[in-house]
């Protein structure tokens, strides 16, 4: 019996090659690709929904927003009254800006874990997903909260403090974004640790200060460069430190968080 051929090959050989291609794509390379996709999905999908849950919860309860807003208004008013018409150098003003940002962050960022602990929803969350997506979701939430807070503080500071003039806006706003990421990465893991403690309020800034000291010195330097009108390239060293700090703290936090989150 004669069978038709395609390009000199039998139909059997043709289907065999299709099968081999399918096997190669879906069974040899496929599982590794699928495994990676699954791993990313099981991390980022829950993390994204934890971020959405926290954002919606914050907009309804205003646990952190009220505390942050009150602190910023009070701190800026005191600075404004105490400076009066004094001509203060931009070095000092850069430092004061980051003092306000540091203590504002301390007054609100711990809420992300403390509110779960106080409301008794920790066990609920522990039963829903692995620890890492919880940490990543809270980190994303804290990053956006810190970034919005820092943008508001910076704009108010620029408007209210006469001597504080930014000559290099690119350096200044890059510092604000990278500084927010660094503050969020450090404050999230510290918040998770202190949420289990009895003296949450006092412990948070006390624990945070030594961990954030290198970060604060870097952002103050970068802000000073922005006020002096330095070129963007001159601040690259500071930005590298901020990125490295964020990467190191976030990586260490992901490893540590599993032990902090469970009893």
């Amino acid at each position: 019996m004669h069978s038709s051929t395609r390009g000199g090959r039998s139909p059997l050989a043709h289907y065999d090659s299709i099968f081999k291609t399918y096997y190669h794509q879906n069974l040899e390379c496929g599982p590794a690709k699928l495994y990676l996709e699954d791993a990313l999905k099981s991390l980022f999908v829950p993390a994204y929904y934890i971020f959405l849950k926290d954002s919606r919860s914050e907009l309804r309860t205003r646990y952190a927003l009220n505390a942050l807003f009150m602190f910023v208004v009070t701190a800026l008013s005191i600075i404004l009254f105490s400076l009066g018409s004094e001509a203060v150098s931009s070095d000092v003003l850069s430092g004061i800006l980051w003092v306000v940002i540091f203590f504002s962050s301390m007054s609100g960022l711990s809420r992300t874990f403390v509110s779960e602990e106080e409301r008794g929803t920790v066990a609920t969350l522990q039963l829903l997903t692995r620890p890492t997506p919880v940490y990543v979701g809270k980190l994303i939430f804290n990053f956006f909260l810190t970034l919005s807070l820092n943008v508001v503080i910076s704009l108010l500071y620029l408007l209210l403090i006469n001597n504080f003039v930014i000559q290099s806006p690119a350096i200044f706003w890059t510092t604000i974004v990278l500084g927010s990421a660094a503050i969020a990465s450090a404050s999230t893991i510290i918040a998770a640790i202190i949420a289990k403690a009895n003296t949450k309020g006092t412990l948070y800034p006390v624990l945070s200060f030594p961990i954030m000291l290198p970060l604060l010195m870097t952002v103050m330097n970068a802000t000073r460069l922005a006020t002096e009108g330095a070129f963007f390239a001159e601040a690259l060293g500071e930005f590298q430190i901020l990125i490295s700090y964020t990467v190191v703290i976030t990586t260490a936090s992901i490893v540590l968080f599993e032990y902090v989150w469970k009893d």
Binding site: V45, P46, Y49, L52, S57, A123, L128
Partner: peptide, 26 residues
């Protein structure tokens, strides 16, 4: 698990709680 120490999110509705849980569970 159903237990006295499991708490729902008070600021969300019953339906929102379940939807949030379903999403977080992926």
């Amino acid at each position: 698990l159903v237990s006295p120490y499991i708490t729902m999110y008070d600021e969300f509705s019953g339906m929102e709680n379940l939807l949030v849980f379903a999403h977080i569970r992926n």
